[in-house]
């Protein structure tokens, strides 16, 4: 299960809307408990450096990846995963997403439609290198 701070969630959604019709991308940070439940607290927005069709593909440069790792160390937070958007497409990982996916990371996908509707889902690779959906828990932050 993954819980997302409302402000962090807004940052990702806004990035998806602002970058539309291209794909946005970035890192998210937080904490993980002993049974693997995650809390997302901070976001680092990075540029989609994919050369070519950024409406269908994203890429994060090695330089930005190293910056993403440093951000975690500096804030004493765990780098929990990568988010990106699927413009005019469901928030379901593609084969392209699966091939490049790393173990351990959560992959948050934001579907962004023409009418500014957004939908967010989270996925993680299992030991067979297949994606499994990770439930997003919105309740944890409701009373804060």
């Amino acid at each position: 299960m993954i819980s997302i701070d409302p402000i962090a969630k807004q940052v990702m959604i806004r990035d998806g809307l602002n970058t539309f019709p291209d794909e946005c991308c970035g890192f998210f940070y937080g904490e993980e408990d002993s049974v693997g439940n995650r809390i997302v607290k901070e976001i680092l927005v990075v540029n989609n450096t994919k050369e070519g069709d950024r409406r269908r593909r994203f890429e994060i440069s090695p330089k930005d990846y190293l910056r993403g790792e440093q951000f975690a160390s500096q804030r004493n937070l765990q780098l929990l995963g990568v988010y990106h958007s699927h413009p005019n497409h469901p928030a379901i990982p593609s084969e392209q997403d699966r091939i490049a996916a790393q173990p351990y990371f959560s992959y948050i996908i934001i579907s962004v439609l023409d009418n500014n509707t957004t939908h967010m889902r989270s996925w993680r690779l299992n030991d067979s290198f297949q994606f499994e959906e990770e439930e997003i828990n919105s309740n944890i932050f409701q009373n804060h």
Binding site: C25, K50, R56, R57, E59, Y65, A100, Y107
Partner: peptide, 11 residues
């Protein structure tokens, strides 16, 4: 030496 996973994908 840094091991850097390539982060990429798309719809």
């Amino acid at each position: 030496i840094s091991i850097v996973p390539a982060i990429a994908g798309g719809r």
